[in-house]
């Protein structure tokens, strides 16, 4: 087997070496819940803007500590501010949690496939989020809300652990106040005083106001939650081809070269993280794939 001469003829533009991070400065760190925070960044140096599509992620580098993938949670209409929301659970996120305004982070990205919002033109849009899974969906929500006239009903079903774990509370309240958005929140457990729903997010699907025959569903959360959500959406009549999920696997390079994020034959970093449910449905039930 000879290598295609084409492969060896091109020269890399080292300015865009995909393994080198770009400096970004922290504008604000906001604590959303006990363990979750949102970090707002602005590009420094050579970059002025940072354009991305909803659902994409970046690799975030904390000086000397390490680099991790985090999805973008900001408004894609504002490329001058880069927003990430994450839980402080690992070495890098815990270090990030301690950072302050003015500190520098390294950013590589944006990477991965976006939520195919354009495919939802003219149909109802259902977002189903579980826990921190609301963060990668938020840019898509912003975009849909910004072009509200392009869609039918727009519904967000959001499940999380307890009322204290509800993310973006103010924003959810603003959206709920609109007449053209349907926002339902449920928690796994609550003490009295919580006036919302208690139960798993899949319980919200049978009664949510959308037309299953004309719906695009974007689902993000723990893998188990996404599996059960997709099944419930399908039971309601949504075509598996119209359901999109965002997968998580170990990512080190984010450009399909390090091999870590393989999920069957796909690389989650470059073929995903957003996948059409019908395309990965079989793999989702294989053990340890």
């Amino acid at each position: 087997m000879a290598t295609d001469p084409e492969l060896l003829s091109l020269k890399v533009d080292y300015k865009w070496n995909p393994m080198l991070p770009w400096p970004f400065q922290i504008r604000r760190v906001k604590h959303e819940t006990e363990d979750t925070f949102t970090i707002e960044l602005q590009p420094l140096g050579a970059l002025e803007e940072f354009a991305y599509q909803p659902g994409q992620f970046n690799m975030l580098y904390v000086y000397g500590v390490g680099e991790i993938p985090i999805s973008i949670s900001g408004d894609p209409a504002n490329p001058r501010v880069l927003v990430h929301t994450t839980r402080a659970v690992g070495t890098v996120t815990k270090a990030m949690d301690k950072m302050k305004r003015g500190d520098i982070l390294g950013i590589r990205g944006p990477y991965g496939t976006p939520w195919p919002i354009d495919q939802a033109n003219g149909s109802d849009v259902v977002f189903v989020a579980g826990g921190i899974g609301l963060a990668p969906l938020r840019p898509a929500l912003y975009e849909v809300v910004a072009h509200r006239e392009l869609y039918g009903k727009v519904v967000l079903l959001y499940g999380t652990r307890t009322p204290l774990d509800v993310l973006f509370r103010q924003e959810l309240e603003n959206w709920r106040a609109r007449f053209d958005l349907e926002i339902y929140v449920t928690v796994d457990r609550a003490m009295t005083g919580w006036r919302g729903n208690v139960g798993v997010v899949t319980n919200l699907i049978p009664r949510a106001p959308f037309d299953p025959r004309n719906t695009m569903a974007f689902v993000c959360g723990p893998e188990i939650m996404m599996r059960f959500t997709a099944m419930e959406l399908h039971k309601r009549g949504v075509d598996n081809e119209h359901i999109f999920v965002s997968m998580e696997r170990n990512m080190k390079c984010a450009i399909g070269l390090c091999g870590h994020c393989q999920f069957g034959s796909v690389f989650v970093c470059k073929d995903g993280p957003v996948f059409r449910y019908s395309e990965i449905k079989e793999m989702l039930v294989k053990w340890e794939i």
């Binding site: 363990d35 499940g159 796994d188 139960g199 319980n203 959360g221 723990p222 188990i224 059960f228």
Partner: peptide
């Protein structure tokens, strides 16, 4: 029961 099992798994928790 299915919902209860999902809740018991505490999938949004620290150690899912």
């Amino acid at each position: 029961l299915e919902s209860t099992r999902l809740q018991l798994m505490d999938i949004y928790g620290d150690r899912p």
